[in-house]
Amino acid sequence: MTAMPVAHISWALADNAERPACDAFFQDVFGARTVFEMLETPETAGMGLDREERLMLVGETMIIPIAPAGEGVKQTSPLGNMLRRSAAPMRWIGVALKVASLAQADARLRAARFDLHYDPGMENHYFIVARHQALGMRIEVLAQDLPNDPRRDPEWRADPADNPLGIEGLQAIGLSAPSVGEARAIFGTRFGWPELGERAMIEGAAFDMGDTVLEVLTGSEGSAVATHAREIKGIYHLVFKVRDARAAAAKLRERGLDLIGDVSDRFAIAPEQAHGRLIWLTDVTPEGYPPVGSRMHEFAPA
């Protein structure tokens, strides 16, 4: 399988007035470091911007909360309407995956019977696999570099010692699904991601995406996961590996944040205190999972 490293993970905010507080939370609590901002300013007023966003690295993982702005606040804006539809607790927009050749990725995914969408003018930069084709997870496949992305440097690595929680890297992306069988058909067979085996502890299965793991979660009828798969769909959680789970938990409690889960396995800030996102932390690596760390540097210019 050709690696498709995670370029970024994004979610939507319906009101741009909420975005600064959301950004600040991830900067203060998760140590997110800004590498680029797309903001509406007097200098950019004539560019027709339809959103505002801050590209932030948590360890080596780019996260982007996005809100409609400028042209995007109009009800006629396709991007603004997509963001407003996507803005809800526990709902994410999706992931962007990096490839060396957009044409080769196009051919491979079309052969796997995916319908691909190109935004006008972006035909040489990225295409999109819509949410309904991937169990609610919008997948952007891109060949372009993200602005100011330090991961392009083969020598660059994030230092966990510089992160307030000691984050080492992104261990997994969780996805709610109606059944493991449907996920195997999409991600195992059609995307070609190797299955790492069933995981009883998450009631599902896991797939190697290239530089992180996709955890497919099913859940019993009436469970939070099953409800998510039916009513919200798509990404359910992120999992970051930390150096010392107990030390990270202690720092979060010192901030007055409520924790859920088990510090000896996985724990998270209660989603209602984390802008509606479930982000687990752990210092345990499940059997068969690859080491954490971005592989974006593999696509650096020769």
Rank of each mutant, 00 (worst) to 15 (best):
M1H: 14
M4E: 12
I9N: 02
S10W: 00
S10V: 02
W11P: 02
W11H: 04
A14N: 03
E18T: 13
E18A: 15
R19M: 09
P20M: 02
D23I: 09
A24E: 15
F25E: 06
F25G: 01
Q27T: 14
D28N: 11
V29G: 01
F30D: 00
F30H: 02
F30E: 01
R33H: 04
E37G: 09
L39D: 09
E40C: 14
T41L: 07
P42R: 15
E43G: 05
A45V: 13
M47P: 10
G48K: 14
D50I: 06
M62Q: 14
I63E: 01
I64C: 10
P65Y: 00
P65E: 01
I66F: 03
A67S: 04
E71I: 14
K74L: 08
T76C: 12
S77L: 05
S77V: 02
S77T: 01
R84S: 09
A87V: 00
A88F: 01
P89C: 07
P89F: 00
R91W: 03
I93D: 09
L102G: 07
L102C: 05
D106W: 12
D106K: 15
A107G: 14
L109Y: 06
R110F: 02
A112N: 14
F114R: 02
F114V: 06
D115I: 03
D115R: 10
Y118C: 10
Y118P: 07
N124Q: 12
N124W: 03
H125K: 15
H125E: 14
A130E: 13
A134S: 12
R138V: 10
E140H: 14
A143S: 08
D145F: 05
P147E: 03
N148T: 06
R151M: 06
D153R: 06
E155W: 11
W156F: 10
D159P: 03
D162G: 11
I167M: 04
G169T: 03
L170F: 04
Q171L: 11
A172N: 10
G174K: 02
G181P: 04
F191D: 00
P194Q: 09
P194V: 10
E195I: 08
I202M: 02
G204L: 09
G204A: 11
A205F: 03
M209A: 07
T212G: 05
T212V: 06
E215H: 06
E215P: 03
G219V: 13
G219F: 08
G219I: 11
S220L: 13
E221K: 15
V225C: 06
V225P: 06
H228G: 04
L238Q: 05
L238H: 06
V239L: 07
K241H: 12
R243G: 10
D244M: 02
A247I: 08
A248Q: 05
A248P: 03
A249H: 05
A249M: 02
A250L: 12
K251T: 09
K251Q: 14
K251A: 10
R255D: 00
L257I: 01
L257M: 01
I260A: 14
R266S: 09
A268Y: 00
I269V: 10
P271I: 04
P271H: 03
P271Q: 07
E272F: 11
G276E: 04
T282F: 10
T282E: 10
D283I: 05
T285G: 05
E287K: 13
Y289A: 13
P290V: 07
G293H: 14
H297T: 11
A300T: 02
P301V: 09
A302W: 01
